[in-house]
Design a protein around this nucleic acid. Structure first.
Lengths: 226, 226
DNA sequence: GCAATAATTATTTTCGAAAATCTTTGGAAT
DNA sequence: ATTCCAAAGATTTTCGAAAATAATTATTGC
């Protein structure tokens, strides 16, 4: 693995996790020290991330972590619902046994981690399994373009979920585990209408929760309208 | 405008237009001579284009123009139809007078160019206006994510259309101008069902035509399955 | 002849410094 | 005090060479 690839992985990781705060300038000298490499691999990584809209770039003024905004969150969630519901229908139509088994397996691993407490309760393992579960649902859609857009939108929305994940602040009266189980059940039963309805509700609840948590909080890197 | 930005524009242009053939290796020494600049800005541009899937990259083995394949074409067209039909419905719901005027204007400019022959018949002006027309239809959808995906998919499918554009080979019995006019008319009449049906038919016809033109022609840079 | 291996060449990747540009600071004039 | 301008400093961008890796060619042993 080249340094540029390591830089890409590390920067993407740190941006999505919020270790590099939204809006923060990404100075090459800082990054060079932080990741212990020269400018060239860093600039290559930053250009890739710029193409993915995780960093902003301004000519001769360098790069910044892309800001967050409630408008963007709502847009990303709306588009996600459309893209993933279509993909889920395609998966339900096309998926074979190994696709179904992948969902069962991913849900099981996710629930194991949800149940853990104390030193085993690693938020990042949980997050990785949450991603894996949603990815498994769509795995059989047979559309590389759809899956790429799913990845983009997942990364974009994950940035908003991190603060509440770190606070372990699940909304009162919401059983996310039950939502996942119901979603998996409807999918495995090949009930596309029910599954997509559950998926949409799942995302709308998450978006509503996040909207209430970020009350246009300036300190969190949120930015008004545009 | 920095050299890296110029390199990005030039490379993207040459790849989409087919001047750099699909699958062709993009050696830095060649590119350095072709575009008259050093390695650094070229590598930055290539990394951006890699993130956009217009070039492929293999660790320590450099970059290539992304290959074409019928599978990818069909996937891109299918996803495009879903994304653009949703966006068109949103635009029809939200669009104001200036959006409608933009469509009329774009269609008029497109038709002007379609009618030109001889030295004024510039294929690239035509192509730019074709893009502008389709973009104008979606302009009011109020979803940056949707518009970004539209741009990605437009660029991806444009690559397949270039050879037939250059051959000026419109399919017999197809009046693309009439298709555009009908699409604009239904959109301006705010008839979402009709407009999306016309849009889907428009793209399916194009895809069918391209599928028949590229009969899995090896020389065109096409690649089997996946 | 042919396979394996060493030597050579070609190419990508990375660094460190130079060039270009932006930002801040300090001072002079109004 | 405020605005303007120049100088100094900070930062990005680019280059050219060095290092690392891959690909090719030549050589050796059988």
């Amino acid at each position: 693995m080249t340094l540029a690839e390591k830089a890409y992985d590390a920067l993407r990781h740190d941006i999505i996790r919020g270790e590099l705060a939204p809006g923060r300038p990404l100075r090459l000298s800082d990054l060079s020290e932080r990741y212990d490499m020269g400018f060239s691999p860093l600039r290559e990584a930053l250009n890739r991330l710029h193409a993915e809209r995780l960093v902003t770039a301004e000519s001769l003024r360098g790069f910044r972590v892309a800001p967050l905004s409630l408008d963007e969150l709502h847009d990303a969630v709306d588009v996600r619902i459309k893209v993933e519901c279509d993909a889920l229908r395609a998966s339900i139509k096309l998926g074979d046994d190994s696709w179904a088994a992948g969902i069962v397996s991913a849900l099981y691993a996710l629930n194991l981690q949800v149940g853990r407490t104390g030193p085993d309760a690693d938020i990042w393992t949980l997050e990785a399994r949450h991603y894996a579960f949603h990815r498994a649902l769509l795995a059989a859609c047979n559309s590389p373009w759809t899956l790429e857009f799913f990845e983009r939108l997942y990364a974009a929305t994950e940035r908003y979920r991190i603060p509440t994940l770190l606070a372990a602040a699940n909304p009162a009266g919401r059983d996310v585990q039950a939502e996942h189980s119901a979603l998996a059940e409807a999918t495995l039963a090949r009930d596309a209408d029910k599954a997509t309805a559950l998926l949409e509700a799942h995302y709308r609840r998450t978006a509503d929760h996040l909207t209430s948590v970020f009350g246009m909080d300036k300190a969190s890197g949120m930015v008004a309208a545009g």
